[in-house]
Design a protein around this nucleic acid. Structure first.
Lengths: 144, 144
DNA sequence: CTCAAAAATGAAAACGATTTTCAATTTCAA
DNA sequence: TTGAAATTGAAAATCGTTTTCATTTTTGAG
């Protein structure tokens, strides 16, 4: 549904953002990525399509895409500056710590736990974050 | 068990680290904290006990404590540079995004899910991370 | 289509957190 | 007690990110 460049650009437009070459290039890079990408990686990839792109615009566009819930930041031991298309609904992430490859898995039953915990501790739950990391089959085969 | 300054210092010693005033000050600050603390906050707190302490030593000590699994980094929307005593066993974190207060809750049943997912996707699971955030009762009462 | 206001851009400078360097100090085992 | 090795704090360097600002691009009204 929201997993194609057209709808991402549409979302930008709906929220009053202009469609620019810089944004198109970043969107095209992020929308189909199955790997977590750092701003610098997005920059390098997107510049192949739009060489005039500035790194600053990558940062700014990623920020906007985050606000619109189209991408999300990925947290890992070695850094928290990579981005992926946002997991939808009750999905969570399984990420390869070597190559950044991501799988999205369903975790509906976890929502109940979160709600229960909120009540138990008197917390007003705002967000939850579940992420599993390890080596994908390919990286696993190559050895560490 | 590992939740007192004595055993943390013992762990440092066992692993060949020397016991210094700087490390004692950082350990004393971290070991009993129920709030996530940034390196700067650790520095400011620990300096009350040992004014000669340098910020650099805080960074270095936190790194060592992380390696020894005595503290862990906390990931939040607004930054990933705060630390807490490490959750033990199958515990996970419930954190107040306003004041950093942390609750540790048990999540044994989640381990089974992680193992199952690893098999399903062919991943060699190395780590998992579950964290819930929101407002603690106190911060919730104060309004946003 | 034209045009002007507003939004967005890229380059450079500024920034803040973290790391490195290094000479001086501290620890600890012999 | 002593000396080698580890550790320290201060300063400088580094890295990712943000801000500033003059210029360019987008878009909607005419």
């Amino acid at each position: 549904m929201s997993s194609n460049a057209y709808s991402w650009l549409e979302q930008l437009q709906i929220h009053g953002y202009r469609l620019t070459e810089a944004r198109r290039a970043v969107v095209e890079t992020m929308v189909g990525s199955s790997r977590a990408l750092t701003p610098l990686e997005v920059y390098e990839t997107a510049r192949r399509r739009y060489p005039a792109l500035g790194l600053v615009s990558v940062y700014r566009t990623l920020e906007v895409l985050s606000e619109l819930h189209l991408v999300q930041r990925v947290h890992q031991e070695d850094g928290c500056n990579a981005y992926l298309p946002r997991a939808e609904g009750h999905q969570h992430l399984l990420i390869c710590e070597r190559c950044g490859r991501a799988e999205y898995f369903q975790g509906d039953d976890l929502e109940a736990l979160f709600i229960q915990l909120g009540q138990q501790y008197g917390y007003q739950i705002r967000a939850h974050w579940l992420q599993i990391s390890g080596l994908c089959p390919k990286c696993s085969a190559q050895g560490l």
